[in-house]
């Protein structure tokens, strides 16, 4: 069922074209199904957006209210009555720190793994693969114990450090697959011109890796931004992140619940914009991150 116009044309050169009407009917059908799918996929977000812009007294009324005077009061309340600002800052600090550190230590490792085949690399890559699939609690519960012992429980530092380690295996695989696409001859040429390994990596290879690094960075940021399990175990009140905040508000009553919805929208809107702007990188990362074993 190739509906790409070029392909249809290529086929049409050889076989008599199918009746025009049938094709357009099929196109309408496909379009209709896709529109419905998109609508279904977006409906939880749309309904949340509606719930949080309703006046508080009708926000969660049953039967639901469909026509109302939109208001942004819940966002104002969220900002004024909760520590949302602090949680947002915490989330961003954790995401930025863990992304930068993960890239700084992941880049040279991934480069080395891409350039030196052999059993040491294979062992490291297999270890990374297993770590990536690990049940989080197997590492996060000991981290909780450790952070208590070290007195860094409930700090953004502890969460960021945990996330650097947890996301390291994924970023190494992703970056290594990108590095592998750069021919070895590039390295050899740079070293012929007098660069050492570090200079080759920093001056020649990394500039070539722009999109790959951006992709890895986007994924690290997204994972840290989304992380709930690690943050809920390692934080209490000071270093709480937005997903944890939203989860704790769920058992609450009306004004708080609507504020949780407002927080969910504030967290969601930037990542939705992101899905459109950085789509190319997300798609590339999902494919390069795959294990080609």
């Amino acid at each position: 069922m190739t509906t790409t116009t070029e392909r249809t044309r290529a086929v049409a050169d050889v076989v008599p074209a199918p009746p025009r009407k049938r094709w357009s009917a099929r196109r309408y059908l496909v379009g209709g199904i896709l529109v419905l799918t998109c609508w279904a996929m977006l409906s939880p977000v749309i309904w949340t957006a509606m719930s949080v812009t309703k006046p508080t007294d009708v926000a969660f009324l049953n039967p639901p209210v469909f026509f109302y005077q939109p208001s942004l009061q819940s966002f104002v309340d969220l900002w004024q009555t909760t520590q949302f600002y602090q949680y947002l800052i915490n989330t961003l600090v954790v995401a930025v720190i863990s992304t930068v550190v993960a890239l700084l230590i992941g880049l040279p490792a991934a480069y080395a793994l891409a350039r030196m085949p052999g059993w040491i690399s294979a062992v490291l890559l297999i270890a990374a693969l297993i770590f990536r699939a690990l049940p989080r609690f197997a590492v996060v519960l000991p981290m909780y114990d450790l952070s208590r012992a070290l007195g860094i429980y409930d700090t953004t530092f502890a969460v960021a450090a945990a996330l650097v380690a947890i996301n390291q295996p994924f970023s190494i695989w992703l970056l290594r697959n990108f590095f592998a696409e750069i021919p070895k001859e590039v390295d050899e040429a740079a070293m012929m011109d007098g660069c050492n390994r570090v200079q080759t990596l920093v001056r020649v290879i990394i500039p070539l890796m722009g999109p790959g690094i951006l992709t890895a960075g986007i994924f690290m940021f997204l994972f840290a931004f989304q992380e709930y399990l690690t943050a809920t175990i390692l934080t209490d009140i000071n270093a709480r992140t937005v997903p944890v905040f939203i989860a704790t508000q769920l058992g609450q009553t009306l004004p708080m619940l609507q504020q949780a919805g407002a927080a969910a929208m504030l967290l969601t809107l930037p990542v939705i914009a992101f899905a459109f702007i950085a789509q190319r990188y997300l798609v590339a990362g999902l494919n390069a991150g795959s294990v080609k074993g």
Binding site: T37, C38, M41, L42, P44, V45, W47, T48, L222, F225, Q226, E227, Y228, P243, I246, A247, L250, A260, G261, A264, L267, T268, V271, I272, F274, A275, F276, Q279, L282
Partner: peptide, 17 residues
């Protein structure tokens, strides 16, 4: 872009929605 939305939303927030 639209189909990617549910992937980028944190799972716990998607669950809340």
């Amino acid at each position: 872009g639209i189909l990617l939305v549910s992937y980028v939303i944190p799972q716990v927030v998607g669950g809340a929605m």
